[in-house]
Nucleic acid binder design. Structure first.
Lengths: 150, 150
DNA sequence: CATAATTATCTCGAATTCAAAATATACGAA
DNA sequence: TTCGTATATTTTGAATTCGAGATAATTATG
């Protein structure tokens, strides 16, 4: 028989509940994104630029956890679709910034409110107090987990 | 300016904290899995069979959310590596069961305790009481989100 | 200034995934 | 039985991702 401490059992239990919940919640988001003819990664890039403004490609990869080769691929596609343009950085010629075009911004202005509403519904199983608790717990959990990754 | 209700703001905030926490926690798991030369999907299949015993391929896909074509692909690979075998179901000839070989079972016996310990550490940012709260909140969140997917 | 080390991006090939179509089997109804 | 529908698996082709290596530009060091 395998020896597993009660603490470990509880940790595994939390991990499973966490994963299942994550899948169910993100499924709402994914369906909405797909319904607009976008892929999750494309949406993530557009959302980042929409909220944070022009970003170096490197930053984009770091923010949404994408390998550099994949960043090139997604940015290529979005640029071909006219959603954004590449702009060379004048201060550092190694760097390229991605900037939303008017078309890209319009798209996000059109779909983001709906998307926010989908997210609101997806997490509406918790009331305001519970959401507050969940935020505090998840923030702590995530921060500590990130620390231990170094 | 975009009108967004306070509730929606809170929901988006929860979603972001949730996603970040999930990435940090799962990164622990992914690194451990990789360190054993396995891919996440392969590990998921092995873990399922290890804990639940032989399963129809269809069940495997349903459990770990994998398209049927991908199931065939992963099972092929694991079978070639000698981790499992396919066994035709005598009662229903459409069905194939995947069963761990001794080699596959030994591998899991060897790596699962370590993996459990990695998970324990990954979520150790919360104490026992907090884990209990998190489990309750995440279960509720996940269950309600799943309901709304129908 | 010259060289080494670092950083940002892109290219290329391999691996994994999905979706749709093909195949085989099971099951219910006429 | 026979037909039609449903289910399980495999096949196929396209899309996305990663990792490693190449290139170019910057920064640090002597």
């Amino acid at each position: 028989m395998t020896e597993t401490s009660r603490e470990t059992e509880q940790a595994l239990h939390l991990y499973r509940v966490f994963s299942r919940a994550y899948r169910s919640v993100t499924e709402h988001s994914l369906r909405d994104i797909k319904s607009h003819g976008l892929h999750p990664t494309e949406f993530a890039v557009l959302e980042l630029l929409y909220h944070k403004g022009p970003q170096p490609l490197q930053q984009i990869g770091a923010s949404i956890l994408l390998a550099s080769g994949s960043v090139t691929y997604v940015i290529d596609k979005l640029e071909k679709n006219g959603m954004l343009i590449r702009e060379p950085c004048p201060k550092d010629r190694r760097v390229t910034h991605a900037t939303l075009t008017q078309k890209g911004r319009s798209l996000m202005e059109q779909i983001f409110p709906t998307h926010a509403e989908v997210i609101r519904l997806a997490v509406s199983g918790l009331d305001e107090q519970e959401k507050k608790q969940a935020i505090a717990l998840l923030r702590k959990l995530g921060t500590e987990a990130a620390k231990r990754l170094k």
